[in-house]
């Protein structure tokens, strides 16, 4: 009794074999639950700068969808006020023109979205409007790819995407802002 032999000591040890399993379990739990801060945003390609004034292109007004945002963050679409929530559907209708109306785009390839804002417009409003316009195109492209290839646009191959891009090019032109409102 007085002397402890090795066998006794062995029996007293806590089994640490499962510790690794617990650690892995925790690790996996954190991996699943945490969202890694990612850098995301709305990707835009700016037009190249040129010092010459742009050519005065004769464009059929029916193909131009003008969206104006004023310094009070109000929306004027083709001379009529509109809510941001309705912008996406209205834009889709304009580009697609399913009923071949005379005041909407002749063809999606000819449609031009013209976005103009004021220097006093809030950036948040600008981005929301831009996002809605882009969303309209995304929706249309998804519809088109569903129809042609039976899958969403983002899952299409490069060749398939190019095909859709040809039919539905994204043309959102940003005009120089007006400066009526107050900047802050």
């Amino acid at each position: 009794m007085g002397k402890t032999n090795t066998r006794d000591r062995m029996k007293n040890e806590v089994n640490a074999g499962s510790m690794a399993d617990i650690a892995f379990l925790l690790l996996i739990f954190f991996l699943v639950t945490t969202t890694i801060a990612e850098d995301k945003g709305v990707l835009v390609r700016l037009p190249p700068w040129s010092n010459e004034p742009p050519e005065n292109l004769k464009m059929n007004t029916r193909n131009v969808y003008s969206v104006l945002v004023n310094a009070d963050d109000q929306l004027l679409v083709r001379g009529e006020s509109m809510k941001v929530e309705d912008l996406k559907e209205a834009t889709k209708l304009f580009i697609r023109n399913p009923r071949k109306e005379a005041n909407k785009a002749e063809d999606p390839t000819k449609a031009i979205i013209s976005l103009k804002n004021d220097r006093g417009t809030k950036y948040r409003t600008f981005l929301t409007v831009y996002n809605e316009l882009k969303a309209a195109y995304t929706d249309l492209r998804n519809d088109e790819s569903e129809k042609r290839f039976g899958k969403l646009y983002e899952y299409c191959s490069r060749a398939q995407r190019d095909e859709i891009k040809k039919v539905l090019p994204v043309v959102i032109s940003e005009a120089e802002p007006t400066s009526f409102g107050d900047e802050s």
């Binding site: 190249p48 004021d118 006093g120 417009t121 950036y123 409102g181």
Partner: peptide
Amino acid sequence: IDGTVTMGIVADIKTALR
């Protein structure tokens, strides 16, 4: 860009980038 910023400075930055 902060959401409450007005477009004036953004437009200037865009011009500079172009």
